[in-house]
Simulated scan of single mutants.
Amino acid sequence: MAAASAPWVVAGLPPACQPPGSWPPPVPARCACRRPSASRWPPGSTSVSPSRNRGLSTFRPAAASFRVTASASLPPQADEPCAPTSRVSKKPNKQHHLWIRKDSAGSGKKALRLVNTVSKLPNEKEAVYGALDKWTAFEPEFPTIAAAKALEMLKRQRQWLRIIQVTKWLMSKGQVLTWTTYDTLLLALFMDGRMDEVESIWNNIIQTHTRSVPKRLFSRMILIYDIRHCPDKVLEIFADIEELGVHPDEDTTRRIGRAFAALGQEDKERLVLKKYLKKWKYIHFNGERARVRMGGPLA
């Protein structure tokens, strides 16, 4: 009888209604690569182990038999080949987005390369401009920060001719037209002895940017004319300062006073010094910061 040959018999059921075969069903053999190690599952322990498949949870009793609670995701049979496991790795994005690219990245090296390039060139406009065009040929956007750093390096090295060449090339490209660039160009032209170009550029600046010329450029022009012993030119710049309402610094004020004194106008010198010089200044006395009157005994 089928029911008698079974290892178990359900009480209360006739022999014809007994389920055929053995029950519970045999546990399918797991693949060797997924078999847990003996150290992880010591004999005689009872624990619940989460399967690699999220839909499967297995229970390990001490009798080394398994009970599957979710039959839809059974492990592969012994005769089924185990699929090789592969990890999903995210490839790095090597695409450079130009709209979020930082312009200051590597600007110091670019500036140093520009300085080393122009320092070895002959004093010819075509050679210098050709090298500068090659410097920016493969740049996706104009290296503004690198060009400004290169001008500062050339200024520290006192290469006035190279500053003039690089600045005029930048002006022809319409790039780096800042007040610092104009100030560096005026200084380089003055140190190179080109006073006619200094006056031409200054007149162009004062006519184009009348209300926005900074105090720094006025001080630069007064310094240039004071070194050249041109007091009349100093007073012309001072007239523009008075008209535009620019307050000169202390050094520029003393140069203006000396220009009035050189022309024999001592009364105007006193008025200028009284108007623009500070009445008080701060000094350190006995380890403390103290305010004293300008021209006093402690000043």
Rank of each mutant, 00 (worst) to 15 (best):
Q159E: 10
V128S: 03
N203Q: 13
V115L: 08
H247M: 03
A127V: 11
V246N: 00
P248S: 01
M171S: 15
S45I: 03
L121M: 09
G106L: 07
K278I: 07
W160S: 04
D249Y: 00
S119L: 10
K233R: 13
Q165F: 08
L235V: 01
M191A: 13
E124R: 14
E243T: 10
S172L: 08
Y282S: 12
D249A: 01
V176F: 04
T46N: 03
L13N: 05
E269K: 15
K281Y: 09
D196P: 02
R52F: 07
E236T: 12
A127I: 09
L186G: 03
E243V: 05
K268H: 11
T208P: 04
W169Y: 08
S49K: 14
E236K: 15
Y225L: 00
V27S: 12
T181K: 04
S172Q: 13
K155A: 15
G106W: 05
P25S: 08
A3T: 07
K279R: 14
A148L: 14
R228T: 09
K215P: 06
P25N: 03
A299P: 01
A72P: 08
R258P: 00
Y276H: 11
G130E: 11
D103N: 13
S86Q: 14
G264S: 02
R52Y: 11
E141T: 12
Q18E: 06
N93L: 09
F138H: 10
P20H: 13
Q18V: 00
V48W: 09
R54T: 09
N93Y: 07
K275Q: 06
K90P: 08
A146G: 03
F142H: 14
D267G: 07
A148G: 06
V234I: 06
G12N: 14
K149T: 09
V176W: 01
G296F: 05
E139W: 03
T178H: 04
P61F: 14
D192S: 15
D133K: 09
A290R: 15
N286K: 15
R228L: 13
